[in-house]
Amino acid sequence: MKDKLQKIKDDAFAAIKSSEGLNALNDVRVNYLGKKGLLTSVLKGMKDVAPEDRPKVGALVNDTREAIEKLIEETKQKLEAAEMERRLKDEVIDVTLPARKSNCGHRHPNIITLEEVEDIFIGMGYEVVEGPEVEYDYYNFEALNIPANHPAKDEQDTFYINDKIVLRTQTSSVQARVMEQGKLPIRIISPGRAFRSDEVDATHSPSFHQIEGLVIDKGITFADLKGTLEVFAKKLYGEDTRVKFRPHHFPFTEPSAEVDVTCFKCKGKGCRFCKNSGWVEILGCGMVHPNVLRMSGIDPEIYQGFAFGVGLERITLFKYEIDDMRLLYENDMRFLKQF
């Protein structure tokens, strides 16, 4: 037994010394110390050893294992140091060259879409502003014509911090904050996180992003809203995109509408993606309700305006034909690399 162990040790040492890289070294480790390695098989042969000799043999096996492990570790460090040196040399060369595309990281698809949307609106003279995600009930609901006990509060399944502070359920909360500053005209978009207590599934997430838009000026009309969103849809999804406005209801706008665009997958012919309708709903909008203007100190007899809210995840999923919203928050490299 002792001879057998000595032989294993000698063979292992020779193999370690001759291994030329980290991978080869690892093969040696597996070969000798792994689950099916040579040393392990010796341990399995222990049942043939007389019981009184077992502790002695056991100790011998352990000594052998430790010796091999120690040499592997030392060799590994040497190899790694060499590797590092080699890489550093490479790096020096790398930096002088333009970055290769494949070495670059990838932006999150949500943000790629968001920046595209921002650029479209900045081009039309919109300022991008942000507001708090943990927000007073007042800005999230009351100032938007959703008084206490309004059923819309239930519908939106709000997360509460206390009875007057919520995680905002919509980026519309920024509307009132901007309006009450009294600087007119207003032409903003406001992207950011919003929260609703939906369980996670393929189309729902308790945390998501919205892009709110708000324009207030003298003589702003529903026709302007239509024109603006048509420009937006065509720039985002292509010139041949058609836009459909359907009457809808939101407490903070009147008249209100939901907007469908022609399905960009089938170009309106009907497919699985658009449930055969040829249309996909992308946003809600309307003329700012006079109560909302009044509450923020703007006279609805002089000023009027429109607002719209786009679900960022929704348009991102459509744009990239992603089926499952959960993918956006798992940060799997194989997913992120595709963008």
Binding site: E118, F121, I122, G123, M124, G125, Y126, E127, V128, V129, E130, P185, R187, V215, D217, K218, G219, I220, T221, F222, A223, D224, K226, G227, T228, E230, V231, K244, F245, R246, P247, P255, A257
Partner: peptide
């Protein structure tokens, strides 16, 4: 508007003074 038809409402862009867009 509902019975006139949302689709018949014209499409225009807001007039008024030009604003400077941008990010913070």
């Amino acid at each position: 508007a509902r019975f006139y038809g949302y689709d018949k409402i014209p499409t225009t862009l807001p007039k008024g003074e030009a604003t400077m867009g941008g990010i913070s």
